[in-house]
């Protein structure tokens, strides 16, 4: 079995507030970039599947040459190989099209694993688009893999407030949430391997596809209105402070 884990390069969590509107608009960010935090869980999930059910975990990303560093992080965590699809022009549907073409070129992928969403784009629509592009079933909100083999998979999904146990035939796309597992730390040996690894770079032409023309257009990038910064503090005994707070909340009409 082969597990293909799709990752994206995004700003580090702590750096998100520093992203400037003009940087978001151009895509040229000056902040520290890392593996999208949701995708770290996808890497953990895929590597655990490899350890539990056998086979190979591979990583892939769509991006510029600088995204190769993120693929090295995936190798350092334990992926056996990694591939860069070089493109910086595609929107979500375009990325899904490119990834689907890469999956077809590989030919032996049993499960595609993604994080449920990215901390930059936030829409959470890519996993489904990728599944549609491949014609594979898609399971989103995956919190636990119960069992998996070449024929199919059983997982637990978070669906609203409920938890569903579902089965799907292979091949399939899984979008995972944090509960799938905390990302492991890279080992020294894997870091050394990752640093030396050859990472193939595929262009859309190598994949035999044209990058679809973007259908989503964003404009007027701006900072959200700042919260009024000053906090009203209540003092006194716990009961006095609680009473004063309650009165303030009733006056605000939020209770």
């Amino acid at each position: 079995m082969r597990y293909l884990i799709c990752i994206k390069q995004t700003p580090d969590t702590a750096e998100l507030p520093k992203v400037k509107p003009e940087e978001a608009a151009s895509g040229r960010l000056s902040v520290q970039l890392v593996v999208n935090p949701w995708d770290e869980h996808a890497l953990e999930g895929g590597i655990r599947m490899m350890e539990t059910y056998g086979g190979e975990a591979s990583a892939i990303t769509v991006g510029g040459e600088d995204a190769i560093e993120r693929l090295r992080s995936a190798l350092a965590m334990g992926c056996k190989d990694a591939t860069l699809v070089k493109d910086t022009t595609a929107d979500a549907w375009g990325v899904a099209t490119l990834l689907a073409a890469a999956v077809r070129k590989m030919g032996n992928v049993t499960y595609v694993i993604t994080g449920q969403m990215t901390v930059d784009g936030n829409s959470g629509t890519l996993p489904v688009a990728l599944g549609r592009a491949l014609g594979w079933p898609v399971l989103t909100g995956v919190a636990r893999v119960v069992s998996a083999d070449e024929k199919g998979i059983t997982v637990e999904r978070i669906v609203g407030q409920a938890r569903h146990t579902v089965t799907a035939p292979a091949p399939a796309v899984l979008a995972v949430v944090k509960e799938i597992g905390e990302p492991r730390y890279p080992t020294f040996i894997n870091i050394r391997k990752a640093a030396r690894a050859e990472i193939p770079v595929w262009t859309p032409a190598d994949l035999g596809v044209k990058v679809p023309v973007p259908v989503v257009h964003m404009s007027d990038f701006r900072k959200p209105p700042a919260r009024e910064a000053k906090v009203v503090l209540f003092n006194g005994t716990p009961d006095e402070a609680a009473q004063a707070l309650l009165d303030a909340l009733l006056a605000e009409k939020v209770l």
């Binding site: 998100l16 259908v215 964003m218 959200p224």
Partner: peptide
Amino acid sequence: TRPIYSGNILVDVRVDG
């Protein structure tokens, strides 16, 4: 109008089709 970058940027979005 939607938030991106986890609520740190707002943007207007239009789509084709």
